[in-house]
Computed example of a mutant assay.
Amino acid sequence: MAYRFAILLSILLCSALARAEAPLLRISAGEWPPYLSATLERQGPVAHLIGDLLAEEGYRVEFHFLPWPRAYAEAAAGRFDASAVWMHKAEREADFLFSAPLLDEQFVFFHLKSQPFDWRRFDDLSGMTLGGGLEYSYGPAFDAFLQSGKVRMERVSSDRQNFEKLLKERVVLYPQEINVGYAALRNQFGAADAARITHHPKPLLSNLSYLMLPKRLAASDALRARFDARLQQYRDSGRYQRYFDDLQTGRYLPVAPAPH
């Protein structure tokens, strides 16, 4: 018995030592529940997926949650090994390499049930005031429409602020990814307020998001190749989809913050 215990202890110690010696990757991220958040179990399904992928490539991973503009800027400056997760924009290619697509998203317009809304073309939104997120892109076509001046977008730093403005009728519409929007309503508002809000079924944008790796770091190209190959293995085996199936069945719930 003592011999078996010694063998088991040796295996555990070796495993812990191997983990401690694995190279550390630091990834900047913005708060984007239910996909990514410091306050969720395993920091959300996207963080869980990225962490597992890179662990199988021999890395330890730390996520550092920052305001979105800072998450971008500090990763671009090479102070992080990667940043998660971002829509592709051509101008971002000056700073980053993009992984293979990591997340499929659907953006919709949220609005009050008391203010019925319909649209077919962007011009149908003319004259409206919209809520929006700091540094958010809503795809090249809608970004160009915003620049036309036909609508006004008031950008703030959180979903909570945007939905509060919607509830107070300070904005008419809030474009957001459908699961992200409903997670914010579910977790940050009472049932009565959440029930006042719905979304238009026509998608504003069906989008892919990516892990971005800074061009400033020499290791980024090789790391991207390893990440992409492992991600494809996950997709081929069906393992990729299980993270998002778990999200729909109630995993990745909010967790209590760690004591200071």
Rank of each mutant, 00 (worst) to 15 (best):
F117Y: 12
I7Q: 07
I11K: 06
F5D: 13
P257A: 14
D236N: 05
Q147L: 15
L66D: 02
E93C: 11
A194F: 01
G58M: 08
D193A: 03
I178G: 04
S37W: 09
L97Q: 06
R186Q: 07
R235S: 00
F63S: 03
M153E: 11
L223M: 11
A192E: 11
F107Y: 14
S99G: 02
R120H: 15
L247G: 00
E41H: 10
R251C: 05
R224E: 08
R152M: 15
R239W: 00
G181L: 01
N179G: 11
S206T: 15
E154A: 12
F109T: 04
S157E: 15
F107T: 11
V180C: 11
F117A: 08
I27F: 05
A100S: 06
F110M: 06
S220H: 06
D104H: 06
A90V: 15
L223G: 03
L208H: 14
N162S: 04
S206F: 12
W32A: 08
Y243R: 03
A229I: 02
H260P: 15
H199C: 06
N162F: 02
E31S: 12
Y136V: 10
G250V: 12
S99V: 02
R170A: 07
Y240I: 06
S83V: 10
L9M: 13
L130F: 07
R60D: 14
S237T: 08
R196G: 00
S209D: 05
L146M: 13
L25P: 03
F122C: 02
D246W: 07
D123Y: 12
T198A: 04
E164I: 06
L24S: 06
V171Q: 04
R170V: 03
I27M: 08
L134I: 13
E169I: 05
Y35F: 12
Y182S: 04
G181F: 01
G238K: 03
G181P: 11
I197C: 01
L253D: 11
L25H: 09
Y59V: 12
R120C: 12
P45Q: 04
L97H: 05
L217D: 01
L247M: 10
Y72C: 02
E91R: 14
F98Y: 05
K168F: 10
Q188H: 11
D143I: 00
L53G: 02
P34L: 07
G132V: 05
A222Y: 07
Q176F: 08
A73F: 13
R155M: 10
Q248R: 14
V172D: 13
G181C: 04
L25T: 03
E62T: 15
R251N: 09
P67E: 00
Q241T: 03
A218I: 03
E57V: 07
S15Q: 13
A222Q: 13
G58W: 10
S37V: 12
L8D: 12
G133K: 01
A38T: 09
R242M: 08
F227N: 01
F110L: 07
Y243P: 00
G190D: 04
A77C: 08
R160N: 10
I197Y: 01
R42Q: 15
A84W: 02
F5M: 14
Y72R: 08
R242F: 06
A225Q: 15
D221H: 14
Y234I: 06
G78H: 05
F109Q: 03
E135N: 10
A94G: 14
P45C: 04
F244W: 01
